[in-house]
Amino acid sequence: MELLNEIESDSDQLEPLEIITSLALMLAIRHQTPTAKELVRTWLSDPIATAAAQHAVDNLRTWTELPPEQAVERARAFDMLEAATAALAQLRHTATDSPDRLGKIFLTVDLISRNINLASEAVLVTSGDPTEDREFAARALTVLDGIAQFKHPSITHFLIEALGHLAAADPSRAFHTAATAVGAGDEYTYDSVAAAETTKFIERYLAEFREVVIADNKLLTSIRSVLHAFVDAGWPSAISLAYRLSEAFR
């Protein structure tokens, strides 16, 4: 611990810090070493407290990308990521009077959102189909559920992209997460890239998951809610799609 504190206090020691955090994660996840598990638990209970905590959160991505053959280790990594996400949600409520802490919280959530997106893309490339690894999809969706409440354009952008990778594994759950993340008046809905990405996401549901949408009234309601958030923002593509949706599901 003394060595770790010394490294954290020296900005020139970032590479050793990276090595130490990676080693701690390996000992905690693969070998279940009690001291390492406690150290990682401490980091993830306050992910913005130290540089080591930030590195640990970032390095969990490698473990979440493990193949199904290493599902036990992957599950432990997801447990840790969920703990970090829950801690960040709690910290957010106590940091309302501290812009600096609040900024760090959102930056860390943005990191998690980006990494879940990258991990989901990597798993999809490896398996060719998210339905081939439903356990990964379920765990990734749980993390995304936790960060959907952090309504910031960058966070939401990565979240929507990740949901696009995962949707085939559980179309209803994936879109309900999108509906939590995107609401009328959100800053995200006024971005042209967001409008294009989200309308494409909805169009995919109408094409690939039409039978699921027809059978699930709650899903259709969620789709309409997200789409109308972009309609309210005045995007022509969303307005056109809303008309087509109305015609298709009278």
Results as ranks from 00 to 15, higher is better:
R101V: 13
N217G: 09
L44F: 06
A87S: 13
E161W: 07
E69T: 12
I155D: 14
P171W: 01
D97R: 11
Q149A: 07
D58K: 15
S98K: 05
S237T: 05
V109C: 07
E82D: 07
V231W: 02
K151I: 05
L166Y: 02
A178T: 04
S113T: 12
A179I: 03
E211M: 08
A119L: 11
I105W: 04
T62A: 09
A71M: 08
A122Y: 11
L81E: 05
L227T: 00
A53N: 10
T42V: 13
D133T: 08
S222L: 03
A207L: 08
A229G: 00
L66I: 12
D79N: 13
T221Q: 12
I214V: 15
I147E: 05
P171C: 00
T199D: 00
E187G: 08
S127W: 11
L4A: 09
A87G: 04
T85I: 14
D79M: 09
A184K: 08
E2Q: 10
T177N: 09
M26G: 07
F150K: 02
W43N: 06
L17D: 07
A53T: 06
L44S: 03
L220C: 01
I160A: 01
E208R: 04
L17W: 08
N59E: 06
I105T: 01
T96M: 14
A83Q: 15
L219N: 09
L166V: 07
T131F: 05
A233E: 01
I29N: 02
A24S: 15
A77T: 09
D100F: 14
D186I: 04
E6A: 14
E211D: 15
L206F: 14
D58R: 12
D79R: 10
L27D: 12
N117R: 15
S9C: 04
I239T: 00
S113C: 14
D58S: 10
P47R: 03
T35K: 05
I7G: 02
K151M: 01
H31T: 10
V109L: 10
T33C: 10
K218Q: 14
A95S: 15
T131K: 12
Q90R: 06
G164W: 12
E121A: 14
I147S: 03
A207H: 01
A178M: 03
H55L: 10
R114S: 12
A122M: 10
S154G: 10
I7Y: 04
S192R: 13
G146L: 08
T35G: 00
A36T: 07
F78E: 08
A215Y: 03
